[in-house]
């Protein structure tokens, strides 16, 4: 475990906590894409299949449980909670996320570290996570007044990916034969998707104006 990876995991944790707090306290999910949340729940479900099979560390197990619980809780809130579900921006959250699940599954079948069920699911989850933010970014372009908590949620998600890239660079230079093309390429693609969000987010923060993403 290195500082970059720990900081990355903590930033990822903060992003889901920010989102959960927003939804739980103000009972609103305005501006939040249910499709992205469903994709994330699927990412964790597919990736953490070895939760009870391989014990890596207490930290690893606890964090997996936290990410699984939080992602499914957020989906539950947005789908089932009688107040929150009414604030869901259904008509603007129209990204056809089914169209990205299938290609990621096919890619997982073709490009994986070992052709076993768990490894295919793991690769699928890596590819899916890379594009899971798309529905959320599309929704932000269509949302007029983006509220701070939603913007912070996306910002922390992007920050966690940037930190993971530093983690991989560090591990590449400190651990012999630490090579993971699947995570690296998918992770770089994922981070690039946040590029223009970061640009407009930092610009709005510097000029102290409301965040607006150009459509």
């Amino acid at each position: 475990m290195n500082l970059f990876r720990l900081a990355g995991d903590m930033t990822h944790l903060v992003s889901v906590v920010v989102l959960l707090l927003k939804i739980h306290t103000i009972k609103s999910c305005a501006g939040v894409s249910l499709k992205t949340q469903e994709l994330y729940a699927l990412v964790f479900a597919a990736r953490y299949l070895d939760l009870f099979v391989h014990f890596v560390s207490l930290y690893n197990t606890v964090m997996k449980l936290v990410f699984l619980a939080s992602s499914f809780t957020i989906v539950w809130y947005m789908r089932r909670h009688k107040i929150v579900r009414r604030t869901y921006d259904k008509e603007h959250d129209t990204f056809r996320h089914h169209f990205i699940v299938l290609p990621c599954l096919v890619l997982g079948l073709l490009l994986n570290e070992k052709f076993t069920f768990r490894e295919v699911m793991w690769a699928f989850s890596i590819y899916l996570e890379a594009v899971a933010i798309l529905p959320q970014l599309v929704l932000l372009q269509r949302t007029r007044n983006i509220d701070n908590l939603t913007a912070q949620y996306v910002f922390f998600l992007g920050a966690y990916r940037v930190l993971y890239i530093f983690n991989w660079i560090y591990r590449y230079f400190t651990e012999p034969h630490f090579v993971h093309w699947i995570s690296w390429i998918a992770g770089i693609v994922q981070t690039l998707l946040y590029g223009d969000f970061f640009y407009y987010y930092i610009l709005s923060w510097k000029n102290n104006v409301k965040l607006e993403l150009p459509a």
């Binding site: 990876r5 995991d9 070895d50 391989h54």
Partner: peptide
């Protein structure tokens, strides 16, 4: 991490 070992990253 050799092949087949559990992925140690989240």
């Amino acid at each position: 991490r050799q092949r087949g070992e559990p992925h140690d990253e989240l």
